[in-house]
């Protein structure tokens, strides 16, 4: 593999992170569950996520803080987010739901009742205190090279260091 660097994401990486959230959510289909749920185009959703990312949310995948990025020769190759569920006192579903409530136009939010099944599917049950991995995305040209494993190890080691140095608490 060429020169691989894995680092914590920065606010300036948000375009790639938002792409990762939407691409990962598509799960090899043409449309993300957010698009289906809110009946919004991909471009409309990208605008919504740009607004959400301005708040720098921690504790779910809706902020740059939880992401690590793999770069090969300076090019974004892949990314994924991690966090400890509920470490700051709020479950990730509550953060995610609040973010959508505040950033999605009211008329689209009102479609939730119609699309309740899809909405339930994006809020999986998660165990408080456990490490969560979400929004895994690798650029198609960099797949099959073991980059995700490197990203996963980065997240595990970073989280372990955070708890060992006492920077974080709340893990089980």
């Amino acid at each position: 593999m060429e020169h691989l660097v894995i680092e914590k994401a920065k606010p300036t990486d948000k375009d790639f992170l938002i792409k990762a959230i939407l691409e990962a959510d598509k799960s090899f289909t043409d449309i993300s569950s957010y698009s289906k749920l809110l009946e919004m185009s991909e471009n409309e959703l990208i605008s919504v996520f740009h607004e959400i990312f301005e708040e720098e949310l921690e504790g779910c995948e809706f902020g740059h803080e939880g992401f690590a990025i793999a770069k090969i020769d300076g090019v974004n190759a892949g990314t994924c987010a991690s966090w400890i569920e509920g470490a700051d006192g709020l479950p990730s579903w509550q953060l995610r739901t609040s973010a959508l409530f505040c950033s999605v136009p009211t008329e689209n939010m009102s479609l939730l009742k119609k699309n309740i099944e899809t909405f339930s599917s994006i809020n999986l049950p998660r165990t408080p205190g456990s490490l969560q991995i979400e929004s895994v995305y690798l650029d198609p040209s960099f797949r099959g090279q073991g980059i995700f494993l490197e990203l996963l190890n980065f997240h595990i080691n970073f989280t372990r260091e955070q708890f060992q140095c006492g920077c974080r608490s709340g893990v089980s």
Partner: peptide, 16 residues
Amino acid sequence: ANDVANWDSITHLVMI
């Protein structure tokens, strides 16, 4: 939310 039955993502939205 842990203390209230039915407090999930949908009812959270309705409550807000």
